[in-house]
C-alpha cells in the first residue's frame, strides 16, 4: 500500500519576522552607505558656530568646531558599518578556509590548525588588537587588520565543528556509501549544513565588531583627527559633556542603533535556525 500523505507542509503566507527585519535593516544600511550622495555637506565642513544646540538650525546641533553633528554621525555610521563588514568578511574567509581544511583533512593538519586557533582564542583578542593597532600607528586600516587578526578563530572553530559533526551524520555516511564522489559529498551533502550556523554567528557578530572597533577608536586608535568616526567623536566630546552633551551622545547613540540592528537580526536568524533544527 502506498503511503501518500505528506505531513507538515505549511507555507507562510505572511513574510516572517526575520525577512521583515532583514529588509528594513538592509534598506537602512543602503541609505547609510549612500550617505555622501544625499547629505548636504561633508564631515569637515564648518556649518555654523561651535556648540549650537540641537534643533537650533541644525537638527542635532554642532560640535566644538561648528561642524554638523548629525552629518558627522551619519558618515561615522557609514564608516562603522563598512569596517564591521570588512572585519567579518576577512574573518569569514580566513576562518572558513582554515575550518574546512581542518575538518576535512583531520589528523595532523587538524591538530596543528586547531592548536593555532586555540592559542589565538586563548589570548585576550581586543587587548592584543589594541597593542597591534598602537604599534602599527594611527589609521583605520591598521585597526581593522588588528581586529580581524583576532576574529577569524571563532569562525574557524564553528566551521570545523560543523564539518566534523556533519561528517559523522548518517546522511553523509549514506552518501559516501552510495558511490558519490568525495567532492560531491563534501560540497552537496556537508557544506550546506555549515552555512546556517556560520551566517548566524557572523550576523550576531556585527554588533560586537562595531562596538570593539568603536572602543579602539574611542581610545584614539582609529582614523586620525578630522575624520568622522563615532568612537573618536564621543571621546572628543567628553570634555564638553556637561555643557554640550549632544556632541558625545549623538555618535554613541548612533553606535547603539547600529549594534542593536545587527543584534536583532542575528537573534531572529538564530531563532529561525533553532526552529528549523527542531523540526
Amino acid at each position: 500500500m502506498a503511503e501518500a500523505t505528506v505531513v507538515g507542509v505549511t507555507r507562510h503566507r505572511r513574510p516572517s519576522a526575520p525577512i521583515v527585519v532583514g529588509a528594513t535593516v538592509g534598506a537602512l544600511a543602503l541609505v547609510v552607505a549612500l550617505a555622501p550622495a544625499w547629505l548636504p555637506y561633508g564631515s569637515r565642513k564648518v556649518v555654523g558656530k561651535p556648540f549650537e544646540h540641537p534643533l537650533s538650525g541644525h537638527l542635532l546641533g554642532t560640535d566644538s568646531q561648528g561642524r554638523d553633528v548629525l552629518v558627522r554621525s551619519v558618515l561615522g555610521l557609514r564608516t562603522s558599518l563598512g569596517s564591521a563588514f570588512i572585519v567579518i568578511a576577512i574573518g569569514l574567509v580566513v576562518g572558513t578556509i582554515i575550518g574546512l581544511a581542518a575538518g576535512f583533512a583531520g589528523g595532523i593538519v587538524d591538530t596543528v590548525l586547531m592548536r593555532i586557533t586555540d592559542v589565538a582564542l586563548a589570548l585576550p583578542g581586543p587587548v592584543v588588537a589594541l597593542a597591534i593597532a598602537a604599534a602599527l600607528g594611527p589609521g583605520l586600516g591598521h585597526t581593522l587588520i588588528a581586529v580581524a587578526a583576532f576574529w577569524w578563530p571563532w569562525y574557524a572553530r564553528i566551521v570545523r565543528g560543523q564539518v566534523q559533526s556533519i561528517r559523522k551524520l548518517p546522511y553523509v555516511e549514506a552518501a559516501s556509501l552510495g558511490g558519490l564522489g568525495s567532492l560531491r559529498v563534501a560540497t552537496a551533502h556537508v557544506l550546506p549544513g555549515t552555512v546556517g550556523p556560520v551566517v548566524i554567528a557572523a550576523s550576531l557578530d556585527i554588533g560586537a565588531v562595531v562596538l570593539v572597533l568603536a572602543g579602539l577608536s574611542f581610545l584614539g586608535l582609529g582614523s586620525p583627527a578630522p575624520a568622522a568616526e563615532l568612537g573618536a567623536m564621543t571621546s572628543q566630546g567628553l570634555q564638553f559633556l556637561f555643557n554640550a552633551p549632544w556632541i558625545s551622545l549623538c555618535p554613541a547613540v548612533g553606535l547603539f542603533l547600529l549594534a542593536a540592528s545587527g543584534n536583532i537580526l542575528g537573534d531572529l536568524l538564530r531563532d529561525r535556525l533553532a526552529k528549523a533544527g527542531s523540526r
Binding site: 554588533g207 542593536a260 543584534n263
Partner: peptide, 22 residues
C-alpha cells in the same frame, strides 16, 4: 529578557557611562 539582552549587548560601554554620569 530578550529585549533587555539586545539593548545592553548593543550599547557601547561609553554610552552607558556617559548616560550614568549625566
Amino acid at each position: 529578557v530578550r529585549v533587555i539582552a539586545i539593548v545592553f549587548s548593543s550599547a557601547p560601554t561609553f554610552l552607558l557611562g556617559l548616560g550614568a554620569v549625566l
